[in-house]
Amino acid sequence: HPGLVRDTLAYHGCAELFQDVHTELIQYRREQMIKQGIVNDELSVESHIRRENGSCPLMPEEVGLLLRAMGYPSNAIIYVAGSQTFGGQRLLIPLRAMFANVVDRTSLCSKTELSDLVGPETPLPPDVFKMPNPKSEEQLKEEWNRAGPRPRPLPPPPDRPVYQHEKEGWYAWITENDKEPNPSPMDLRMQAHRLLWDALDYIVSVEADAFFPGFHSDGSRWPDFSGLVIGQRLYERASSRTYRPDRKKIAELFNVIRDDMYHPKRNWILSAREHLNRSLSEEGLIRQSLLSKPTSFLSHPIPECSCRISSVEITKPIKGKDGRILFGGEPECPKWMQSARAEKARTN
């Protein structure tokens, strides 16, 4: 899950990691957050410093390089979760170049299946796009006569045609107005659709063989998609391969090879592999408990929602500075649960 959402990027000040109009869109949203009291910081911040502090998401290109360092083959199937990726498909081009089988819900589900997921809806009036009325010959002559004393330059060439896609979404206002318009009924409906698509991606992410979050534990006290998936996978299958990378450490690694990211040296690959393997172990669980659990219990539901079988060695509880148990200390599972587990093992 890339975690590239406009509100999250604006909250953490990651605008300079993008280009052109996307930077303006993030800054506009950040300005609104400052006015609403959500952000208590300056409008313009150094995004590259924020990234080095771990406050900005990993780019899909960086995730692809990390997966390649872990030894994933180029034909591995990678499912990109998330109903929207701010920055568009352009950001996924490097990832698709490294892995041939990068898919999402649109490539695995037909239009009929996605429509059935939404269900029947009342038709909305379409947003009718009206071409600007061309000026008549009389209007052009009148403007020419009022243009001032002669000699004067020739009139400018006629304006190029305006196409419909240039008046849809943020194209319609970012180049003409300073204020974002209120969402239309179609925009509100698309927001509702994204919630359903996120629910579909959530199920796929929980059941996946491995999960790699691009942005989690951001400290914003908002529930994030990746954090909820990590907690659900930990609850259902604690042994599942769920990466919990430290973005600050990852930023330090990429700063070493920023000039030649696609040809890292052997020691860099080993360092990246060691860090990601540690994130899969108890060290990653403890770090996740320290960062996520104080703000979202669902992102780390242990030891409260877990138990141990009697044959497993009792793990010494690890406590934080506030006395809260971070890892270990699970109660013993009830006998009916252990007997059911033994019966299932004999059946298999």
Rank of each mutant, 00 (worst) to 15 (best):
V103I: 15
L67W: 07
E42Q: 08
A100F: 13
M59C: 04
Q84A: 05
F86G: 01
C56P: 06
A81H: 04
M70H: 10
G64M: 01
M33R: 05
V103F: 15
V63S: 02
T85C: 04
E61M: 02
A100V: 13
S83N: 14
T85L: 04
E61K: 03
T106R: 14
M98T: 12
E31C: 01
Q32Y: 04
Q89H: 11
G37A: 02
Y79P: 06
R50V: 00
N75T: 15
N40T: 09
I93T: 14
F86Y: 01
V80D: 05
V80L: 14
L95V: 15
L43Q: 02
L66V: 07
I77N: 06
A100H: 14
M98Y: 10
P73N: 13
S44M: 07
S44W: 01
I38R: 10
R96D: 06
S44L: 11
E46G: 05
V63K: 00
S55E: 15
G88H: 06
S55P: 01
R68Y: 09
V103K: 14
L67S: 05
L108M: 10
E61D: 09
L67G: 03
I77G: 00
A97I: 00
E31V: 02
E52W: 08
R51N: 06
K35W: 03
R68L: 05
I49L: 10
M70S: 09
R90C: 06
I38M: 09
G82R: 02
